[in-house]
Computed example of a mutant assay.
Amino acid sequence: MRFKTNLKNVRTFSKLVAALSTLEKIAWMRLDDENVRFTVIPDTGSQVWASLSMDFIFDSWQLQSAEAQNTINLELPLGPLQRALKSALNGTSASLRLTKKDGIPILSMTITTTTASANTGRDPYSRFSAHNNPRDNNDSHFNAGGDGDDDDGVFAAEPLETHLHREREKIITQDIPVRVLHPETVETIMQPKVREPDVHIQLPPLLQLKAISDRYTKLALASRATSSTTAAVTANFSPKLELSANMHGSLRLALTADTLDIASQWDGLENPELDPGQLNCLLADHPSTKFKEEGPDKWASVRVDGKDWSKVLSVGRLEGRVIACFADDHALILYVYVPQYDDASAEDSVVTYYVSSYSL
């Protein structure tokens, strides 16, 4: 089993890992000849399934295993990986290698950085100023030749003195402990299956949506603290926010509580066209078609945990477009399309979030 690669798109890779780590401390990473997949399945809360092409974050990789497509399955802690990538952000290059240390499998990240150093002192060339060209004076040591040339081939040795800045290369190694998973173990990790969505809509900027969602959550918590006499009850409480969308470009975020009833609405959003070739039914029979025919008053809704929803929206740091698919009163699926900035012709990678709906 062998895996060795150089890293590219380190900043995007770091943002992805940071978003995943808000949901869980451990992730499953699956490597094969074509893709790298990250899966996060916490005990409670939203699940994540990220599929990236190998050349999105890796360069000049070597991958070898006894499994089909040279598949390697690893369980890795996201915290150490996030810290290692943070160190690599300011480096000139970084590489990743699967190896062993004291019999324990690790992903070893080697980061190359450069630091500027300066030696202060007199510059021996400072006397060669524009107003003091050595070839213009009568110093015989700088005579180009001809009469009076007294160069005897012997030069006086001088100490090296320079104030020029020099770059020094520095190597940093970060070791990330991992577990190599058996293929039979990962067969039980299945992506949730949901019915065809009733509404699909492109979300507004996630950081904007997150700011409003967090505000609603804080208001609900403050209201709960005012009305509750038990601090423990308030600490374990997480408000439920209602997200609704229709097939006419509208999205609504609402909070209803004992003393609160507030909502925000976005209009003019895009309902992307579906690809008939990707559907399990005729487009005319698709639930979203029926929702659209019933007009703008026909909404699909889900109820999400306010604190968990805030973690999900952290994926907004990837700055990709996000399509939300609503299965009314059942689940919300977010497809985050991450562009490959150095190759405009390449297909976007997809990070999929599965968010269950809470019942009333």
Rank of each mutant, 00 (worst) to 15 (best):
F3T: 05
K4R: 10
L7E: 05
K8C: 02
V10E: 00
V17W: 07
A19D: 06
L20T: 06
L20N: 07
S21M: 15
L23W: 04
K25A: 11
K25D: 14
W28E: 09
D32Q: 05
E34A: 13
F38G: 09
F38S: 00
T39I: 14
I41P: 01
Q47G: 04
D59N: 14
S60M: 10
Q69G: 04
T71S: 12
T71A: 10
T71E: 07
L78V: 10
G79Q: 15
L81S: 05
R83L: 03
G91L: 00
S93W: 02
T99L: 00
G103I: 02
T113V: 07
A118M: 09
S126T: 04
R127W: 11
S140M: 07
D152W: 02
L160W: 10
E167M: 10
Q174H: 15
Q174E: 15
D175G: 06
P177I: 13
V194C: 02
P197A: 05
Q208Y: 10
Q208I: 14
T226S: 13
S227H: 15
T229M: 14
A231W: 03
A231P: 05
K240H: 09
K240W: 08
L243A: 14
A254F: 06
L255N: 06
A257I: 03
D258N: 14
D258E: 08
A263R: 09
Q265H: 13
Q265G: 07
C281S: 13
L282H: 13
L283V: 13
D285I: 03
R303G: 05
K307P: 02
S310A: 09
V315S: 15
R321I: 15
F326H: 06
Y337W: 08
V338M: 02
P339G: 03
Q340I: 15
D348M: 12
V351F: 11
V351G: 02
Y353S: 01
